[in-house]
Amino acid sequence: MGKIFLLMGKSTSGKDTIYKSLIKDEELALKMVVLYTTRPMRDGETDGVQYFFKSEEDYQSLKAAKKIIEERTYHTNYGPWRYFTADDGQIDLKTGNYLVIGTLESYCYTRDYFGSENVVPLLIDVDARTRLERAMHREAKQEHPKYDEMCRRFLADEEDFSEEKIAEAGVTKRFFNNAEIESCIQEITGYIKSFL
């Protein structure tokens, strides 16, 4: 039976960069799962690559059909943005191992849906100052920067990934990405291999 490795961390913790490195590692042979979102596409994103970008109506249709495995809604300054995983045939644990990006909340839902023995949390941890500097740098590159939304997300992550919630979820292993992302990736790679 395969495993779902769920990569999570606060915004600008390096999840996307780490994900890309792990998914390219042929030795790990992890399969991608493309998540869904109702948020607007950012510059440089492609539908079906980073996410399946859907409308609120699309989301409601999937929910009515009981096709949503896990979901979370962020009440942004631009309205609600939903992120979710759909039971759309992408995940079949009989055929391999998967790598998914999510949140602490999505980890709990995915663990409960597939069983704790099949879902492995990979929590990326970064100090607040480094995260804020990275967030400012990333937002400045956007054609229409949304600094207000960046600040809202930063503060929301502090609550969503509180020490109490991490403990309640039973997540004990952390990977630190404050400086050298390559060493963080190597540590995660070794950890994943211990399950294969």
Results as ranks from 00 to 15, higher is better:
residue 91 I to H: 04
residue 5 F to M: 02
residue 187 E to A: 13
residue 43 D to R: 08
residue 179 A to E: 03
residue 30 L to N: 05
residue 128 A to Q: 09
residue 192 I to E: 10
residue 192 I to T: 04
residue 87 D to K: 08
residue 121 P to C: 07
residue 48 G to H: 11
residue 153 R to Q: 09
residue 176 F to D: 02
residue 29 A to N: 14
residue 77 N to F: 10
residue 60 Q to M: 11
residue 78 Y to G: 07
residue 118 N to G: 06
residue 86 A to V: 05
residue 27 E to N: 09
residue 195 F to V: 08
residue 172 T to V: 12
residue 51 Y to T: 14
residue 185 I to P: 02
residue 57 E to G: 02
residue 12 T to W: 10
residue 188 I to Y: 00
residue 76 T to G: 01
residue 57 E to M: 01
residue 114 F to W: 01
residue 152 R to W: 07
residue 195 F to M: 06
residue 113 Y to E: 05
residue 52 F to S: 02
residue 55 S to M: 04
residue 21 S to V: 03
residue 114 F to Y: 15
residue 15 K to S: 06
residue 117 E to S: 05
residue 54 K to Q: 10
residue 112 D to C: 07
residue 188 I to V: 14
residue 14 G to S: 03
residue 89 G to C: 03
residue 5 F to P: 02
residue 35 L to D: 08
residue 192 I to F: 11
residue 135 A to N: 06
residue 46 T to S: 14
residue 132 L to A: 09
residue 91 I to L: 03
residue 144 H to I: 01
residue 121 P to L: 03
residue 1 M to I: 09
residue 39 R to H: 03
residue 114 F to G: 07
residue 38 T to E: 13
residue 118 N to A: 15
residue 142 Q to A: 14
residue 159 E to M: 13
residue 53 F to D: 13
residue 137 H to W: 00
residue 192 I to L: 07
residue 150 M to I: 01
residue 24 K to L: 07
residue 129 R to K: 15
residue 54 K to L: 13
residue 95 T to P: 05
residue 93 L to C: 11
residue 97 N to S: 08
residue 190 G to F: 00
residue 150 M to E: 01
residue 163 E to H: 09
residue 191 Y to S: 04
residue 11 S to G: 01
residue 123 L to V: 12
residue 127 D to T: 02
residue 91 I to F: 05
residue 181 I to T: 03
residue 110 T to Y: 00
residue 122 L to Q: 11
residue 159 E to S: 14
residue 75 H to G: 10
residue 46 T to P: 00
residue 58 D to L: 04
residue 187 E to M: 13
residue 172 T to E: 14
residue 124 I to C: 04
residue 92 D to Q: 11
residue 31 K to L: 01
residue 141 K to Q: 15
residue 167 A to D: 09
residue 147 Y to G: 07
residue 168 E to M: 14
residue 27 E to M: 02
residue 132 L to M: 14
residue 64 A to D: 03
residue 190 G to E: 01
residue 73 T to F: 05
residue 101 I to D: 07
residue 12 T to Y: 12
residue 14 G to D: 08
residue 116 S to M: 03
